[in-house]
Design a protein around this nucleic acid. Structure first.
Lengths: 127, 127
DNA sequence: CCTTGACCTGGAGCCCACTCCGGGTGTGAG
DNA sequence: CTCACACCCGGAGTGGGCTCCAGGTCAAGG
């Protein structure tokens, strides 16, 4: 079983050291192992979990919901349906979000086209 | 030329009254007309601009950049290329964002599949 | 005239998600 | 042994983007 120092974990997950400690404080990370001297050592498992958190976070899941999910994950196997519901709901939100982004992109592109055509006929020599 | 009360503008753009005033304060809205008594009256033009702002905002453009864009829009016609650059850059960011969302969605769906299979073999009747 | 409700202002407050700080501790190189 | 450096902790501070508040004003109905 490999272990990783805080800075290695930070590097591999893209979270800052402060954020890693913050996540632990608020209950997103559970029971991170420590060395004799009290330093954290992250396991491969921890990194996997952190990568999932990163994915959820980057797709816009609020911290509060991640905490809920983390708690479920710590609880019994019986919570699997609930965890599934969280992920499925999130997946649906991502889907909607992409659809909306596409629509909005279309609008912005319309605006771009307007500017482009305005640029191609700039002097407008009326005289 | 039609005019709209603050609450009508709010309703039509999806911004709150407070947000409309806030946007004006920080320079996102320029010279909103007033009635004799000092109340704002938004024109069709204003609403159009607000709808563009809403689109930019919802696609993640930071306020600071919108302010820059608003200033350019207030300046001479000579800033059209710059405005174009802002919108094109933003369009590109939206594109990237959608691509990343798709990737991340794929990861999340992978996780969902794992949970699903875990759920379909719950009793595991070893005996 | 009086009331009511939408609107006005400047400024304070709030929420989220970090990020920074200061003072202390362990560990490996030289 | 000493140094440097990565790490520890609790708590305060930050930045973005609103949101709320108090105390006042205007406009339309009765």
């Amino acid at each position: 079983m490999r272990f990783y120092s805080p800075s290695q974990a930070a590097e591999q997950t893209g979270f800052s050291l402060d954020t890693l400690r913050y996540y632990e404080r608020i209950g997103l990370l559970h029971s991170i192992d420590r060395t004799a001297g009290g330093r954290r050592r992250y396991s491969d498992n921890d990194l996997g979990w952190l990568r999932l958190l990163r994915c959820l976070r980057d797709t816009g899941m609020p911290i509060a919901e991640m905490i809920r999910f983390a708690r479920l994950t710590r609880d019994s196997e019986a919570t699997v349906p609930e965890r599934l519901a969280v992920l499925e709901g999130h997946d649906a939100r991502i889907e909607e979000r992409i659809a909306r982004l596409r629509e909005q992109q279309t609008q912005i592109r319309g605006k771009i086209d307007i500017y482009r055509s305005r640029q191609q006929t700039p002097p407008s020599p009326v005289a």
